[in-house]
């Protein structure tokens, strides 16, 4: 299995961004709070896309840059692709003001 790198933007994040295309079952290393953690990919995921670095429950916020970028529409397991199929925007549907 190849070891690939990924990055998080903030220590509060529950998703990481891939720096290369990876195949299913590949182990990906990502630095979280000065500690290197390893996540096994649950599917083939492209460069630049996100995966969960821990389980995200349905209805829970998806966090990148330390901020909510949306809400999980289903349970997302560690290592699963996080994208438009399982996340919806919190902001584009309503007006906060």
């Amino acid at each position: 299995m190849d070891i690939q790198k990924a990055i998080i933007m903030n220590e509060k994040d529950n998703v990481a961004t891939l720096l290369a295309d990876v195949g299913k079952n590949n182990a990906v290393q990502v630095m979280v709070g000065g500690r290197l953690m390893e996540v096994r990919m649950q599917g083939k995921i492209q460069f630049g896309h996100k995966f969960a670095i821990r389980k995200i429950n349905k209805g829970e916020n998806v966090i990148k840059y330390g901020e909510a970028i949306g809400q999980a529409t289903q349970d997302i397991e560690e290592g699963q692709h996080v994208h438009v199929h399982n996340v919806e925007s919190l902001r584009a549907q309503g007006d906060l003001l």
Binding site: T17, Q46, F47, G48, H49, K50, V62, K64, Y65, E67, A68, I69, G70, V82, H83, V84, V87, E88, S89, L90, R91, A92, Q93
Partner: peptide, 23 residues
């Protein structure tokens, strides 16, 4: 606005929501 602002090219590149794109 969600559809208008997260263009197909953005989604293909890995951007999921307008919040992520905005940030």
């Amino acid at each position: 606005l969600q559809e208008a602002n997260v263009a197909p090219g953005n989604i293909a590149g890995g951007i999921t929501t307008i919040e992520e794109k905005s940030l």
